[in-house]
Design a protein around this nucleic acid. Structure first.
Lengths: 230, 230
DNA sequence: GTCTATATGGAGATAGAC
DNA sequence: GTCTATCTCCATATAGAC
């Protein structure tokens, strides 16, 4: 029996799909585990057999999204070497992919707290986050734009944060077809790329330093360090 | 009987205090209405007599905070005319005041969604928000720093957002005594004020335009407008 | 008007039979 | 693996005493 055909995998997938369907229709809180189980034609206990908790379903959604998104991001990066266009491709791919689940992402954005497992900044989502950042990294690396050496180690994370901000705005953007987000993306992206190019001027070194210093403070590790005695 | 002595006001206050105490001790979700009622030495029903819901208690906390914060902010603005110092005073006053409830603010920051009543961006908290912004406005107006005319209508809201960002960071800052936030505030505040002064150069006009344009997109009203025919 | 006692209904989660 | 039956806990509602 091939692994991909295992009945349990199908059931699991069915439950996940049912959950996503309900999340979309009625939102996260309204979609109770009972309703999800019913929608998937399994008993409540079965749903809990496959997913430890309701949050675990969300985690599975994150992982599924990353898997499905990867090739789309690949495609986006294949077509151009212009930095602005590359970043646009990455962001647009995400908007397109998440469009059906925009409202779900909305209620999930409640979890800003890095301590909460479902937060995009949490330990639990670290692998997903790092993969995501690596796409931004590649968008930069494969472009024709030259990035100053002192800025290089920071830029991908910086742009990732920027892009998370756009997504957050998008999630709560109630304008028709999220037109405001489109405008905001276009205008701000042009500025951002403009600033990156400007920042390459030798004159701008102090400003770059300022920025990277701020970033160092934010990411600085304050947790009690292990005494290593090699 | 003086209004301030009404027994019901005392009971109400006692419930609010009990709630805040529990919120601080165990966090928002763990502090159940039952526990709050017990802590306040009233029956569960009494708590609901004074507050329509658990969220209503939080709203009362917001309002209390604003009332108690106002004179502290006044003081902060009375001592200096330097813009950086004035902004620092406002932000520091808030950090100091909210220190005991930092974790509570943390769980409340879940409500980023402007649709949620408890969100700092919601309709329900608009009055509080506007008062808060007016303090930033006064910090700017009473300072010696000259603000370009085209930037003026935007600056208070812009700095308010910036300051909300700092508070958000502070709320999740687990470094000892929130030292990271202190560093971040100091460094970024100096830059911000520096940028404001720089932005006054005639040369910088296009950059100001860029910024205000972005801001217009964000705040632009997309809701169906009433046909007014006066 | 103020408050107690009790009820409702639904949530996430689990134990244990099949 | 999958089910049924059940647990526990909660926010909230209400009837009616004082």
């Amino acid at each position: 029996m091939r692994v991909t055909e295992r009945k349990s995998d199908q059931t699991r997938a069915r439950i996940l799909e049912a959950a996503l369907r309900l999340f979309r229709q009625r939102g996260f809180e309204q979609a109770t585990m009972r309703a999800i189980a019913k929608e998937a034609h399994v008993a409540l206990g079965a749903a809990y057999y496959y997913f430890d908790s309701k949050d675990a379903i969300v985690m599975a959604f994150y992982e599924l999204a990353q898997t499905e998104l990867a090739p789309l991001l690949e495609d986006g990066l294949a077509n151009t070497r212009d930095l602005r266009e590359r970043l646009t491709a990455v962001i647009t791919a995400k908007f397109d992919y998440f469009e059906p689940n925009r409202k779900l992402l909305g209620t999930l954005s409640s979890h800003i707290d890095p301590q909460h497992p479902l937060s995009p900044f949490s330990q639990a989502t670290k692998a997903i986050r790092e993969t995501d950042i690596s796409f931004i990294h590649r968008a930069i690396e494969g472009s024709t734009t030259k990035v100053p050496a002192d800025l290089k180690p920071y830029l991908a994370r910086l742009l990732w944060l920027y892009q998370m901000g756009l997504i957050l705005f998008w999630v709560y953007d109630h304008s028709p077809k999220q037109r405001k987000t489109t405008q905001l993306s276009e205008k701000s992206l042009a500025s951002v790329v403009g600033l990156i190019k400007l920042s390459a001027l030798p004159l701008m070194r102090p400003l770059r330093k300022l920025l990277t210093d701020l970033f160092d403070v934010i990411y600085e590790d304050h947790s009690p360090t292990m005494q290593s005695r090699s």
